[in-house]
Amino acid sequence: MATQIQAGRPAATAGAGAVHKYYQRFDRIDRVMHAFLMTTFIGCAITGLPLVFSDHEWAASLARALGGFQTAALIHRICAGTMITVWLLHVIRIFYDAATRTGFLAVFWGPNSMVPQPQDIFDMWNHFKWFVGKGPRPQFDRWTYWEKFDYWAVFWGMAIIGGSGLILWFPAQFAAFLPGWIFNVATVVHGEEALLAVGFIFTIHFFNGHIRPEKFPMDLVIFTGRIPEHELKDERPQEFRRLVAEGRLAAAEAAPPTPWTKVFGWVVGGAAVIVGTATVVVIVYSVLN
């Protein structure tokens, strides 16, 4: 994730009062990385799930449909390799940005940091109070506590699944310096963590991003990169006030998303939601059987 709001093109507001103002939330690199993450994640999930549920009829059919386990394994490893690359590039980018622009403190502290802050604890508590009608909605800043959880779940997940996956991919090489039981542990960790990741992304993340009534049926911000002013004010009032106070609101303003990015978002996001929801249905059905 970007650690700083990127300045987009100036909003084309002149003369046309009906046009909404937009503010940049994700820059181009964020969006490209998310696109890679999303497709490779679905690729790994679809090719890996038959192994988790190998004793179900559908698993064998899916494995055959994917061209056999060797083709499925190839797709799985291509997706995994790409995802690990995205993960590494992301970490490198954070360090590069920290060294050249933001400084290292901003990585770990402040409203643009993905690291949980004391404020997140209060936000979560107050959010629960709001759920049960015992208080106002918390005034969120740029990153909410559940978004940080999403981020770290994926961050940790990629490290754990990626690490265990590499061990299982290159057993002879890892056995050169690791004891043999590591393969037993890696198998358990890889499968369980994958189930957690798939279950979480395809239910909780989808709910937070798309399915909850305020967002239904789709939040396009990860595809367009821009958030409309009313949404910024409504959902992230603390960020809006901070941008105003810091005098950076104008710099954060961006042109409205082009129609094609919206169509792209609808198609790709919609496809992901459909595939993900179908996957969850199959998993729940299989676990219950």
């Binding site: 629960f128 779940a153 542990v185 960790v189 189930l195 909780i204 937070n208």
Partner: peptide, 29 residues
């Protein structure tokens, strides 16, 4: 490790399951 993973899965889904249900209830209201 197996126990930890089982608790982790159960914990995450229980917490966010509740979080999601309450949020949905509030949003609809």
């Amino acid at each position: 490790t197996t126990k930890f993973m089982q608790v982790l899965l159960a914990g995450v889904f229980a917490f966010f399951g509740l979080h999601t249900i309450l949020w949905l209830y509030r949003s609809l209201a």
